[in-house]
Nucleic acid binder design. Structure first.
Lengths: 339, 339
DNA sequence: TGGCGGTTTGGTAACGGTTCCATTCTGCCG
DNA sequence: CGGCAGAATGGAACCGTTACCAAACCGCCA
């Protein structure tokens, strides 16, 4: 390891002078600066992050906790965070969820792991998170934002799209195509964002005269296998519907697989609409209609807000995010007669 | 920030004693240790990683460069690396590729970013990597492993499955089902692992009397959209085949979408076989037959080998990885008469 | 009681960088 | 030519931790 001392010695200057050239602060005569720069090049010197971190109290690193990477939802988020951080010349330290069992314990342990690592800030996402957990994290790391969850007491640190509006859009899309007999595959009952999208969905149906009790539903786990199994259960129950709303795209893809295997034509027999509009949706068979979340923008805003808090960068932060429906082949008009 | 000095002061002991209690090394009388432990608890003290890193010269962090996260191939790898690192109580710093343009420049810049961050070791993967690039990284960071590429001069640091064997298996699976008119959708021509799997594939076909020139082929980019477009091009060229080999699952999924839209039944009209056996394959419509890469094991081995190099942990490292075919609905017998 | 081995303890140096202060040097003006 | 302001420079101190050293202390045995 070459240190700045080596640089100073080789250049024949004092420690302070060498440091001033490296950091670019303070005045150094052009001739001296040139000598130092040559020494830096010759020794291939790069300043030690650890030493700088110790002195400045800032590691220039942001911790990110992200649940088990399944499907194409979370990878996109990670990617976006990295883009924003690298643009600001900061690094990302990641901790993942590991199993599906006790995700709440997992996120707490993951956050602890990251906090102890002396990150300058923390981005957390998990639908197993509670407001108390977040408060506890905040006690140890005030620079924290929550992605894809929303807690009223912490509204300014939470970044998420309007899932009630999203659920509502899904319902309206189905109703607009004449569907009346509609079934639902929901996410985990414990997941707040799942609850919100279902709330919006049922609210819109209710306004169209369809009570929630009249809507057959299965709860699942946001996974493709789960969606497949839930769809199978629905059909085995003898549910007779012309449209199926799935609370995320992964489950919708599973449902499509189930339909295909049972000989149900989508959308001729049954329309399917997903949620999130992940990259998977575009090339599903048939192409999947989905509620489009501006997840890139949401993630960007959260990351920038955190960067501003940590480093006072003054980046622009959007707080309103529009939700739309991307219509593809899996949504069609309700069949005139069913079966 | 509470420091070990605060702890020592509160406990009424010297700095060294407090440090000995924290690190657990050196002898401390039970009574004193208890006093210190109480002070630690009261002050909620955690030792500073930066200070430890500066003194020990080790940041306890491993850098990971991973290309643009698309599809379900890379996320799995990332997940596996994280599991292994956390099991060893080490952290992961990540840099992603950003765009598809000039991926080689990207990987170099990403590796530089990670090396300058003082990681203890580096895991790099990208099919745009050259042996010279790796040599250059090694000069600055001797603790380096390459995932999913293979360079002869650096064989001991490269971890990848046998893609020639994988390509061969794909061919044998098709031949075994009576297919003779076979088409191929390949990955980027510049990608060595793509070249290897195609090599194996064509070698097996050649042994069955099918020359490479007689196998219609399109090159694409490993993306779903690319696979879709390539399949369209094949069919528009009027290619008449009973089976289609795609060099990864993403492209295979795109090809399936193309088949569906053109009314081609899979596997009744045309069989499709993918490569990698990513989670996507299982619930594709129809379920996708794919060459199964033991990517979890490969990743695990690479990570452990790096951990051993960095921290002398003596973890077991596998070096041989079996490749198999996961047979699902998309592969069927060749139609007796075509069209 | 003196001496000795072993344990326990406190303080200092060191890691590599930046900041601050004191000193020297330069050029300019009176 | 003397004085002075401002630039340029070198070196010490510091960030928080651990390793090492020396000193103090304990009990034990002769």
């Amino acid at each position: 390891m070459t240190t700045i001392r080596d640089v100073a010695r080789l250049a024949g200057v004092g420690l302070g002078t060498a440091s001033r050239v490296v950091s670019g602060k303070g005045s150094v005569s052009p001739a001296t600066a040139e000598k130092v720069r040559r020494a830096i090049a010759e020794l291939d010197f790069t300043p030690s992050h650890s030493a700088r971190a110790l002195l400045s109290g800032s590691t220039q690193m942001i911790g990110v906790y992200i649940p088990l990477l399944k499907g194409s939802f979370y990878p996109n988020i990670l990617q976006t965070i990295d883009s924003e951080l690298r643009a600001a010349d900061r690094h990302m330290v990641v901790a993942f969820g590991r199993e599906a069992t006790d995700t709440r314990a997992e996120v707490c342990e993951g956050a602890r792991f990251l906090i102890e690592r002396d990150c300058d800030g923390l981005i957390v996402m998990s639908n197993a998170l509670t407001a108390e957990d977040v408060q506890e994290f905040l006690r140890r790391q005030p620079n924290l934002v929550v992605l894809n969850s929303s807690f009223e007491a912490l509204a300014d640190r939470c970044f998420t799209a309007d899932h009630r509006a999203g659920g509502r859009l899904a319902a309206e899309a189905l109703l607009g195509h004449g569907h009346q007999r509609i079934a639902v595959i929901g996410g985990p009952a414990t997941s707040p964002d799942n609850a919100e999208r279902l709330e919006g969905f049922h609210a819109a149906l209710r306004e169209a005269g369809i009570a929630a009790e009249g809507v057959p539903s299965e709860a699942s786990d946001f996974s493709t296998a789960g969606g497949y199994a839930a769809a199978c259960r629905l059909f085995e129950r003898g549910v007779d519907c012309t449209a199926l709303f799935c609370a995320n795209d992964e489950m919708a893809v599973g449902a499509l697989a189930c339909c295909a295997e049972r000989g149900l034509r989508v959308p001729a027999d049954v329309s399917v609409i997903g949620y999130d509009d992940t990259p998977t949706a575009e090339f599903a068979v048939p192409r999947l209609t989905s509620v489009h979340m501006p997840i890139r923008e949401v993630t960007q805003a959260a990351t920038r807000m955190l960067l501003n808090r940590c480093y006072d960068l003054g980046l622009g932060v959007e707080r309103q995010f529009g939700v739309t429906v991307t219509v593809r082949a899996s949504l069609g008009p309700a069949p005139a007669m069913h079966r």
